[in-house]
Design a protein around this nucleic acid. Sequence first.
RNA 1: CGGGGCGUAGCUCAGCCUGGCAGAGCGCUUGGUUUGGGACCAAGAGGCCGAAGGUUCAAAUCCUUUCGCCCCGACCA
Length: 511
Amino acid sequence: MAKAPKNAISPTREEDYPEWYQQVIKAADLAEISPVRGCMVIKPWGYAIWENIQRALDRMFKDTGHQNAYFPLFIPLSYLEKEAQHVEGFAKECAVVTHHRLEANPEGGLRPTGQLEEPLVVRPTSETIIGAMYAKWVQSYRDLPILINQWANVVRWELRTRMFLRTTEFLWQEGHTAHATREEAVEETLKMLDVYATFAQDYMAMPVIKGEKTAGERFPGAVNTYSIEAMMQDRKALQSGTSHFLGQNFSKAQEIKYLSAEGREEFCWTTSWGVSTRLIGGLIMTHSDDDGLVLPPRLAPAHVVIMPIFRNDEERATVLDFCQRLEAELKAQSFSGEPVRVLLDAREMRGGEKSWLHVKRGVPVRLEIGPRDVASDAVFMARRDRAANEKSGVPRGEFVANISKLLTEIQDNLFARARTLRDENMRTIDNREEFIRYFTPKNEEKPELHGGFALCHYGEDPEVAQLLADLKVTIRCIPLEGQVAGGDRAAGQCIFTGKPSQGRAVFAKAY
RNA sequence: CGGGGCGUAGCUCAGCCUGGCAGAGCGCUUGGUUUGGGACCAAGAGGCCGAAGGUUCAAAUCCUUUCGCCCCGACCA
């Protein structure tokens, strides 16, 4: 018998974190690089996770009064030009459509022809096209607020891409709202930030810090940008969702105006907010281990996989029958308000290989059912939040009755584990030397695993900016009140310049 | 756009320096032996050696051109 490797994934997180990440995606069959530069193909298992993300978020959006709509993929070039900062922010990463026809060229290939009078930009984000429509839709204060979300794809021509984290085309949702007052728009901005944080923690089991971005990290054209920041297992930060208060910048640029109850013409106050398939990257890097993907049950495409084991046709019949009844029983149970998702995998495949396959794909609970289990009316169970070889027999009835409890336990366990890792790698730092030491890799062999989140007082300063750039550290956010211990808004002194500071910010290396 | 690397079987790659029948492992198909755990044996299928041009009796290999991809920077959800 061939010796199995210690871990299903090689290299391990410790050996080479970025490569480990790629290998997990491959082993879990989530996605693969496509023939198109910078773009990926999301495979069924990966897409099913996205569908679960969509379903949960969509419900939360509806529950907060939003409706879905759809706007064009193409944006006239002139629309993007309207908001100065917005153009500047996106100009360098736009795909532009300039022709609308192909004709045969003399070499036998095809060449574009039929040049467009005005080039069309493939949306990098939809503020401008949606704003143009809102300008038509809003006449009176009675038309407000407009609370719309769209599920869409966008294109940003990034120079360096990584699967799920940064691809040229990606899937996301973008909410765009217009309000009569500043207060209402600010409230909306923070409300949706809360929705994201709740989703991240309750569904993804990923602890996040809600915070405000500094001026330099703001969305192009926004007055304020808020984000949720999560810590990956290599201690780097992942911006996992953003919510922007756009003030009247876009409404003024696009003339989104209404007549108030007092009969005055006013500009709307707008917001936008989004999360993308990047969340899947965050999910992978938050929970997965050296055996592959680990999925929180609430987002797992399958909660339980049943793997029948038999040696001959006679055993096959009894075992399969038992498994099918078990499948039906489990599907009749509910977890988190939905039927338990069960996968009966009766494919002709060696048991060990099949089992490892589901380990690598992150299925929360695995059941191996053989003749012995049928005879004793039990299931042989392994959970993905424990070691792959840790398995135990459980009476069938007890297992079925407790499935929801078990999945909840796994979900909670993953969250607790992730929060512990984050908290262990987050600290307040009060002097410059310690800060530099914290963010300087000690081991050149494994420079990936070091640092974490540092909570520090700081002041805007060119010299500080240079120091951060040299260390490759960024200010992730200024945490909102009550988000992190030591992060509350209390006065102090910038650890670099000694200038007065209004509160601590989260510093980290980031994706 | 700078710096580095690579294009050979579905995948990972060897062969190239020093020109001479296109290879290995994995995967796939079939048959057998296995079977509570990532199996073993055997037989098979599978290639315009990224593309174009040149040198040569002879090119995956040498020369020129070109296209594409990957990695490291600068830019970023």
